[in-house]
């Protein structure tokens, strides 16, 4: 993993507070696990029917019946529980999920999220993303600031089909930490090795800056 990606994952790990029930999306968000301190008190939910997910196992230790939602062979922590998909999403929609960290294709300044479909190019289905995005108490997007062609992912409005409306609270990228507020995007932190101008240029909507002008680095 590049230094920039490591930095953003490490920053995202600080969003996980002690005692939370958390769902980490497939891909980069899953890497957050490696940045949590040993013995950190948190319950990781996996939507295929597991609360109390432990570290990923090698093939020699793996149980063929025990995977996370991304298909990785995982362990369980003492106190873990298995349940069916109905119970798993009752937990999500019922408001028991304190935090989810998800990837994104596009985010809008009102918090709209698009992360499941690019018409004509990518439409594998929405899986559990709508319910996670719409019902987790807090939704953090962990994503590169721009797409592979360098185009901004943070926009004034999404052009792709939405996963959920007005759901995103915070966006952590390789360049910045940005909150979604009633006034639009608010810049909270800047990555090392970047500048305010670079972040503004890579963002497809206006950014509100801290009133005292001091922007912490991560």
């Amino acid at each position: 993993m590049s230094d920039a990606k490591l930095r953003m994952v490490a920053r995202a790990a600080r969003e996980v507070q002690p005692g939370m029930v958390v769902n980490l999306g497939i891909g980069l968000p899953t890497q957050i696990v490696g940045h949590l301190p040993q013995g950190f008190p948190v319950c990781l939910h996996s939507e295929n029917g597991l609360a109390g997910t432990g570290p990923v196992l090698g093939y020699d230790e793996a149980d063929r019946n025990l995977i996370d939602a991304g298909g990785a062979y995982v362990s369980t922590l003492p106190g873990a529980a298995f349940f069916d998909s109905l119970t798993s999403f009752a937990l999500v929609r019922g408001g028991r999920l304190d935090l989810t960290v998800l990837g994104a294709f596009e985010v809008a300044e009102n918090g709209d999220l698009a992360n499941w479909k690019i018409p004509g190019r990518f439409s594998p289905g929405v899986g559990g993303a709508i319910e996670l995005a719409q019902k987790a108490q807090r939704v953090v997007v962990l994503s590169t600031h721009t797409d592979r062609k360098g185009r901004p992912k943070l926009l004034d409005r999404c052009s792709l089909p939405l996963t959920a409306k007005s759901c995103v609270n915070r966006i952590i990228t390789d360049l910045a930490v940005i909150d979604v507020t009633p006034q639009g995007y608010a810049l909270r932190e800047l990555a090392e090795n970047t500048s305010l101008e670079a972040v503004q240029a890579a963002t497809g909507a206006a950014l509100t800056l801290p009133s005292d002008g001091d922007i912490p680095r991560f």
């Binding site: 998909s85 109905l86 798993s88 999403f89 009752a90 289905g125 319910e131």
Partner: peptide
């Protein structure tokens, strides 16, 4: 396509 928990709930 159906949301995952919605599929579970429709079956239930």
């Amino acid at each position: 396509f159906c949301g995952q928990g919605i599929l579970a709930e429709r079956l239930h």
